[in-house]
Design a protein around this nucleic acid. Structure first.
Lengths: 225, 225
DNA sequence: ATGGTTCTTTAGATTTCCTTAAGATTTTTT
DNA sequence: AAAAAATCTTAAGGAAATCTAAAGAACCAT
C-alpha cells in the first residue's frame, strides 16, 4: 500500500511519515507543490494525503493532476482550520475525505483504513454521518439506505453540515457558503430557516435522526450528542 | 481563533466586532493605543486588526510591542485613504496585509481568511482553566468532563473570564464586551449579576470550583488563588 | 409561452432566554 | 452597631430568535 504525503510543514511531514511507515505503509514525501505534482504524474499511489495550502501552489490544483495520472488513488485532504469551504471544494474536485489540522495520528490512521476499505468495494466517494450518506459523485443522498431527493440548496446545506460536523455554524457562515458573493453581509439571513426546515423534514420523513441541533442565538451544529 | 481589533472610531469598532463575532471568531476590542498596547503585551492573539491613526499614539509603534510579545500573530493594518507611506512602513515593520478605509466587511473577512491560510494557523479550539474546558468550535463546555449547557450570554461571559484570567474585570468592562454597542454607559449594570449567578450555578452543579471571585466595589477576577 | 420546480419572502406561532424588579444578603463606611 | 452601598438571588413579563407553512417570484426545460 503506497502513500504519498504532501505537506510543507517539515515537522508534521516527518511525523506523519514516520508514523505511517511504522504502520507498514510505503511512504513517499513531498514538501511542495512542484515535487508533489511531479511524483503524482510519474508514480502510482494508493493513497495521497494532501495539504492544500502549499507555498508554491494550491493543493486543489494537484487534484487535477491526480485525476489525470493517478485516478485510482484515494485522496485525503489536510485542511487548515477555518477554511470551511476548501473542504467542500476538495470533495467536489474528487477528494475522498478530509481531516482538519491539528489532528491525532490515530484519527488519520482510521481514516486511511476506512478509505482503503471503501475503495476496495466501490470507487465512489462517500461522505457519511451515521445513517446519512452522501455520494458526492452522483450527488445522491440516502438515509438508512432510503434515497431522498434534495434540491441544490438543500444538498449544499446538508453537505456543509456533514463536512463541518460538531462545529457550531452561524447563520452568517451558512449563508456565506450557500450564496457565495451574491450576498449582502448586512442582510438578515432568515431564508436560511426555510432550507434548514426543508432538510430536516426530508431526513425525518426517511426515518433519520435530527442531527441538526439549534443552538439558540449561536447557530446550528450537526452532531450526534 | 482570537482576534484583537484596534480602532478608535467607536461605530466602526463595534460593527467589525459584531461581524467577526458572528463569523465565529473570539474578539477583543481596544479603542486606543494604551489599551491595545497593554492587551498585546499580556495576551496572545492569532490576528490583530490595527488602525494606525489613534488619538494617543501611532499604531506603527504597536507593531514593535506585537513583535516582542505576540510574534505569532498576523497583523492587518487598517489605514486611512491616501496614507500610502503608512502602509509601506507597516509592511516593513512586520504587518502581513493592509486594508483601506472605508472597506466592505466581506473584503475584511476574506483577507482574514487568506491570512489564516497563509499563516497556517492550527488555531487551537480548546480554551481551558483547570477542570473547565471550552471547545470554541463545538462551543461545548465541560466541567470535570461533565458537559454543561450554557446560553449565549453565559457562554460569552465564561469565555471572557477564562481568556482574561487573573485579571480584575469591572462590571462595566464585562458589560461592554457582552453587549458591544447596545449599551448605555449611564446605565447600571445590574443585569450582569444575573448572568454571573447563572454561570456560577451551572459550574457548581457540575462539581466545579467557583473561580469567579468577587472583589467588592472593583469587579470580578477569574482565578485559582 | 407554459408548466413545473426551486428559491425567496412574508407573517403568525412558538420557543428560548434576557432583562427587569424587588427583596435578601454581604461588605464597607460612618 | 447602624446605615449605606454593593452584590446576590429568584421569578415573571416581554423581547428576540427560531420555526413553520404558504404564497409570490424567479428559474428552467419543454
Amino acid at each position: 500500500m503506497k502513500i504519498l504525503i504532501v505537506e510543507d510543514e517539515k515537522a508534521l511531514l516527518s511525523t506523519v511519515g514516520n508514523f505511517l511507515t511504522k504502520q507498514s505503509y510505503i511512504c513517499e514525501l513531498a514538501e511542495n507543490f512542484q515535487t508533489a505534482d511531479q511524483k503524482v504524474s510519474i508514480y502510482e499511489y494508493d493513497i495521497i494525503l494532501l495539504d492544500i495550502t502549499l507555498p508554491d501552489g494550491n493543493g486543489l490544483q494537484l487534484l487535477k493532476t491526480i485525476q489525470k495520472y493517478n485516478s485510482k488513488a484515494g485522496v485525503i485532504i489536510i485542511s487548515a482550520k477555518n477554511s470551511l469551504d476548501d473542504k467542500i471544494n476538495g470533495l467536489d474536485l474528487g477528494a475522498d475525505d478530509y481531516i482538519t489540522k491539528p489532528f491525532e495520528l490515530a484519527e488519520l490512521n482510521s481514516r486511511i483504513k476506512a478509505l482503503i476499505r471503501r475503495r476496495q468495494f466501490n470507487g465512489s466517494s462517500l461522505v457519511a454521518f451515521n445513517e446519512i450518506e452522501i455520494n458526492t459523485d452522483s450527488k445522491e443522498v440516502t438515509v438508512k439506505g432510503n434515497k431522498i431527493v434534495l434540491t441544490k440548496k438543500e444538498y449544499d446545506l446538508l453537505l456543509f453540515f456533514i463536512v463541518n460536523r460538531n462545529r457550531v455554524l452561524t447563520k452568517e457562515a451558512i449563508a456565506e457558503h450557500l450564496w457565495q458573493d451574491n450576498i449582502d453581509l448586512a442582510d438578515n439571513f432568515d431564508f436560511v430557516y426555510t432550507h434548514i426546515n426543508a432538510v430536516r423534514k426530508k431526513i425525518k420523513q426517511a426515518g433519520g435522526n435530527d442531527y441538526i441541533k439549534t443552538q439558540y442565538a449561536m447557530g446550528y451544529k450537526f452532531t450526534d450528542s
